[in-house]
Amino acid sequence: MKNSIRRDVLLVDDHAVVRAGLKAIIDGTPDLSVCGEAEDEAQALALLRDQPVEVAVVDLMLGKNSALASIKRFLQYKPDLRILMFSMHDEEVYATRALQAGAHGYLMKGADSESLIVAIRTVASGRIYLSPRVQSEILFNMAAGHPASAAGNVNVLTQAELAILQMLGSGQSVKEISKTLGRSLKTIATHRNNIRLKLELPSSAALVHFATRWVQANEVA
Rank of each mutant, 00 (worst) to 15 (best):
H15E: 13
D8V: 12
R82I: 12
K23T: 13
L130G: 03
I71H: 01
V58H: 12
H209N: 11
S66Y: 07
Q100Y: 08
D40H: 08
A144M: 12
G21Q: 05
S33Q: 14
K72G: 00
W214E: 11
K2E: 15
A151C: 14
S70Q: 01
A67G: 05
E39A: 11
Y94P: 01
V156K: 12
R49G: 03
L11P: 08
Q135L: 13
S149D: 09
K23F: 02
S4I: 10
K2Y: 13
L75V: 04
K175P: 00
V134I: 15
A24D: 06
S113L: 00
F74K: 03
M85V: 14
V134Q: 02
E200D: 15
V57E: 08
Q172L: 15
L116A: 02
N193Y: 07
D8A: 15
S87Q: 02
E137M: 14
N65H: 10
P202I: 08
T180V: 12
L168S: 02
V17K: 10
T122G: 04
V53L: 14
L45V: 09
L84V: 07
A16D: 10
A56E: 09
L81M: 11
A217V: 06
T187M: 12
Q100V: 09
A150K: 08
L45Q: 04
A42N: 11
L162Q: 06
D59H: 07
T187N: 09
F140A: 15
A56R: 11
A211R: 05
S70H: 04
Q43R: 13
L157R: 01
V34L: 06
L181P: 08
G145C: 01
E37F: 02
V220G: 05
G28M: 04
L185K: 15
A38Y: 09
P202E: 11
A38V: 04
V215Y: 06
H104P: 04
R133K: 13
A189W: 03
N3L: 14
E137G: 05
T187I: 14
V134W: 01
S178F: 07
I120H: 03
G126L: 06
R82E: 11
C35K: 09
D13K: 01
R192E: 09
I26V: 10
D13V: 03
I117A: 01
A98N: 05
S87M: 02
Q51H: 15
